Simulated assay, not measured.
Amino acid sequence: MNNPLFYAKILLFGEYGIIEDSQGLTLPYSFYKGTLKFSDLDNDFEKKSNQSLEKYSNYLSELELPSDYQLDVKSFQSDIAKGLFFDSNIPQGYGVGSSGALVAAIFEKYSLIKRNPETISKDELKDLKVIFGRLESYFHGKSSGIDPLICFMNLPILIESKESVDKVSIPKEELGKGAIFLIDSGVTGETGPMIQIFFEKLKNEGFRKTLKEEFIRYNNACIDAFLKKDMNPFFRNLKKLSVWAYEHFRPMIPENLFNVWKKGLDSNAYYLKLCGSGGGGYILGFAKDYAKAEEMLEGFHKEVIYRF
């Protein structure tokens, strides 16, 4: 059974903001991946995954989807009985789309109408995002559908607004001094509680105002400058974004990263931001001189995801 691989995703910009209609920019991340496989289920990981798929298939059997997006749930359940599991090294609770890759893999294999990511139109992307949101909501209570969409498309995606997404080209990587990197906080984050905190904060008019007038403005400016490869305004807005998050997203920043977050802002050697919902998992780092940042962040496990 030769099944395609589904990569993890990284939401470079847009965490929380996309809930309030900011732009977002996401990239596939091939370091982590997953694929559907059959086995005799003779180890705990495979057994657990198979049981999870069975529970999920029950959810799918009761989910009503439009005719163009129907899944062959009976085949899925029959394969689960034959030992189907999701073989994945994507860490859960790290903000890199573990459930997104699973949903994308199931959709690719069991959707009655097959779709080629290369030929999907902007209108279809919009519909797919809605469908994926419904498929993934089983895991998070509520899902925008963005994670599975990126995992399915395996292309960078620009989230233009709540309604509109499009495929996008990002500047070609260069082996320069600069880098975008992940820092492992060493603790798992849970999406649900973090989103709950965010919605509580949204009830405060002052927070809503600063989110719209500052966070979203800096976030969108970062995306615009990054896509144009205009690095001076990019880092200028990135610093403002990092300061804003340090002040307003404190509950989402893992405790062991408070001080290094501030150290980056004070020294301008690197800037940190949330990767996904925060609370644990990965944090994103950006540095014009990665060697210097790496030295200052000694003791933390880091992974470079993009060089410039």
Score class of each variant (00 low, 15 high):
257 L>M: 15
121 S>V: 04
254 P>G: 09
170 I>N: 06
277 S>K: 07
195 I>G: 04
17 G>S: 13
28 P>A: 01
273 K>P: 04
67 S>A: 11
238 L>Y: 03
194 M>W: 08
110 Y>V: 03
59 Y>C: 04
192 G>P: 02
96 V>H: 06
304 V>E: 15
130 V>M: 11
288 K>W: 05
148 P>A: 02
89 N>R: 09
83 G>T: 07
112 L>R: 14
162 K>I: 11
50 N>S: 15
233 P>T: 01
20 E>I: 09
9 K>Y: 02
295 E>H: 12
173 E>R: 07
151 C>M: 06
55 K>R: 13
287 A>V: 02
45 F>A: 09
178 G>C: 07
6 F>A: 05
214 E>G: 06
155 L>H: 14
283 I>R: 06
272 L>F: 10
160 E>I: 06
230 D>L: 01
99 S>G: 08
142 K>M: 14
163 E>S: 13
176 G>I: 00
62 E>P: 03
186 G>C: 05
139 F>Q: 00
200 E>Y: 11
79 D>L: 12
287 A>L: 03
135 L>Y: 03
279 G>P: 09
79 D>K: 06
105 A>T: 10
293 A>R: 07
288 K>Q: 15
254 P>R: 10
126 K>Q: 13
241 L>W: 05
163 E>I: 09
10 I>T: 02
190 E>N: 10
228 K>S: 04
23 Q>P: 00
158 L>I: 05
221 A>E: 07
165 V>A: 06
213 E>L: 14
245 A>W: 01
65 L>T: 08
144 S>R: 09
86 F>K: 03
299 G>N: 07
162 K>D: 06
211 L>C: 08
140 H>T: 08
284 L>M: 14
17 G>L: 00
307 R>P: 06
293 A>M: 03
126 K>G: 01
265 L>W: 12
198 F>D: 03
84 L>P: 07
290 Y>R: 00
64 E>A: 09
305 I>K: 14
193 P>E: 08
34 G>S: 05
40 D>T: 14
302 K>A: 02
176 G>Q: 10
217 R>L: 15
185 S>E: 05
217 R>P: 01
140 H>P: 01
75 S>Y: 03
12 L>K: 00
257 L>C: 13
241 L>R: 00
64 E>W: 11
241 L>V: 00
108 E>Q: 15
273 K>S: 10
1 M>N: 11
103 V>M: 08
45 F>I: 12
